[in-house]
Simulated scan of single mutants.
Amino acid sequence: MRRLLAFAALVLTAATPASTGPAVVRPGARFTFPREHGAHPEFRTEWWYVTGRLATPDKRDLGFQITFFRTTPATDPANPSAFAPKQILFAHAALSDPRVGHLLHGERAARAGFGLAQARIGDTDVSLRDWRIRRLPDGRFVTRVTTADFALSLTLTPRQPPLLEGEDGYSRKGPRPEQASYYYSVPHLSVSGRLARNGQVQPVTGQAWLDREWSSDYLGGGAVGWGWAGLNLDDGGALMAFRIRGAGGRQIWAGGSLRRRDGRVVRFTPADVRFDPIRQWRSPRTGALYPVAQRLSVRLPEGVRRLDLLPLFADQELDARRSGMPVYWEGAVRTRGGSGYLELTGYAAPLKM
């Protein structure tokens, strides 16, 4: 297994920008940490994406999502105006509670600058008004969000080194080489903190998964959305799988990885990954029909492994239309031998990125 010190010794070979427009993701990049935890504004789209499970003192099982997005709009970079939106940041936070039966969520959005929003280069420190995620000098991540229905203040402690997805961090998303992202995950984060809800504050503990991706051409080739799963396995392993979906449900690309408990990594090709619906749920708000329970099959050297991904409950749709943001299904799931999150995009409407 690669150790944290080995990762720290690596040096990033930055992707070179195209003659016009944002930088292009290319194979052969090398990563250095903590720099990769920070922002990469030369690329069009980027996110810091945390999903996890929480337990309360009374043994309630909850799911949570905290995601910060950064995007570079198509504006003239030579525009000297301080009001020109050179970077836009937005964020989602959600809480999944089976006793509530639907997703509790909130959103934020602002252009970078003016003390409202920023994404630091060099290490994780992203803030959007009163929401923030940052990395401490000791390597822990801390985040806080406040919505109308809940507030979370969490510390995320890495127990494993980053997992470079794809080919050493170069993750294909389509048939053309530039249809790709730079991508790494930090699974098995230990979580502690506080949850405030209904006028009460209680301690919570749990386990989480951090995804970091940046790209300038994430969805190409007629893609309308994707399915993604990130699973912390009970034996200490970690499994990520995704499927890029075109019109009519056709598969454009797929991939992922399994890091075994001993640190060995198996990389998946498009032919190695399959998502099959087990149960569907139709949203009463958007009319979208989501395959909220799925059988994930991945081909391993020892044979095909099948995992039934079963949602904590069906209605985990994040409907952010009132804030001018996308609609997608983001749900806590259980499976035999692990738990994690399933994400389904492009079902209410084709996703544009």
Rank of each mutant, 00 (worst) to 15 (best):
L89D: 15
D149S: 13
R259K: 08
L10A: 05
A119R: 12
T16H: 08
R267Y: 00
Y328S: 11
A254P: 06
R176T: 00
A82H: 10
R172C: 01
D61P: 03
Y341C: 04
L231T: 02
L95D: 14
V186D: 00
R26C: 07
A110L: 05
A238C: 13
A320G: 07
L210N: 12
R129V: 06
R144D: 13
S153K: 13
G139V: 13
Y290C: 06
R53K: 12
H105D: 06
G237Q: 08
V191I: 07
P177W: 13
V304P: 11
G249F: 08
A348H: 14
G303C: 05
P187Q: 10
T45V: 03
T72Q: 02
V100Q: 14
P326Q: 06
R322L: 14
A288I: 01
F83M: 05
F150S: 02
A151T: 09
V11K: 14
I121Y: 03
P162I: 08
D138R: 07
F90M: 02
S19A: 15
Q160R: 10
L307M: 15
V327T: 07
L152H: 07
R299N: 10
L156F: 11
R285G: 00
L62I: 09
P291E: 14
V273M: 07
A180G: 09
P284V: 04
F242M: 10
F31H: 15
A55D: 09
M240E: 11
A293G: 14
I244V: 14
F114V: 00
A9Q: 12
L128I: 12
A39Y: 00
F68M: 11
A229M: 05
R336W: 04
L104S: 00
V191Y: 01
L300M: 08
N79D: 15
T13P: 01
Y347M: 09
A93L: 08
V204E: 03
S96A: 13
G236S: 11
F69W: 13
H188P: 01
L342I: 05
L342K: 02
M1K: 01
P277W: 06
G338W: 08
R53N: 01
G21W: 02
V298Q: 05
R3Q: 13
R111V: 10
S19V: 15
F141K: 03
W281E: 12
R261K: 12
V204H: 00
H40E: 02
V273Q: 09
F114L: 13
